[in-house]
């Protein structure tokens, strides 16, 4: 488990090196225009709330983290890198692994999820930090299906 975690952290490092991280503290020109448009749509009685939700940096960080987090689960982006036939095998293998090694699998899953949520998805190689988890699950899924369906 320790070796797996260390190796995984190495992949995290490569993901970090090749990603343009999400900027949480400054807004692009487009983001500023969108922010102004949103502010304009608030009724007068809610201006205070508008200033909190639309302008406070905490909310800006929250919305960006939410966007990055959800994008991890966009099945269509994996079409570019992996074949869709892997999906059912992945789900099967992943759940089998979770059943056997619950805590370890949760930890191994959290590493790429947290990484991608914080760093974002601007990476020409895609979210490869997830691949070890995907491939291990797929291989385990195939193995279990063939040799041991009683898990």
């Amino acid at each position: 488990m320790v070796i797996a975690t260390i190796l995984y952290l190495l992949v995290v490092y490569f993901q970090y090196q090749t990603t343009t991280p999400t900027n949480y503290f400054t807004k692009t020109q487009i983001e500023l225009i969108e922010q102004q448009q949103r502010m304009d749509s608030y009724p007068q009685y809610a201006y205070r709330l508008a200033n909190i939700i639309e302008a406070r940096p905490e909310f800006n960080i929250y919305f960006k983290l939410e966007k990055n987090f959800i994008k991890i689960f966009d099945l269509t982006i994996y079409n570019k890198y992996l074949t869709i036939l892997m999906l059912p095998v992945f789900i099967y293998g992943y759940f089998c692994l979770v059943k056997i090694k619950t805590k370890q699998m949760i930890l191994l899953s959290l590493i790429p999820i947290v990484t991608l949520t914080i760093l974002g998805h601007q990476n020409i190689y895609g979210p490869f930090v997830l691949y070890p988890l995907i491939f291990i699950s797929v291989l385990f899924g195939i193995k279990t299906y063939i040799y041991d369906q009683n898990i």
Partner: peptide, 9 residues
């Protein structure tokens, strides 16, 4: 079925 459709944009 994509979770991003159901829980995201």
């Amino acid at each position: 079925f994509s979770p991003s459709t159901l829980f995201g944009q």
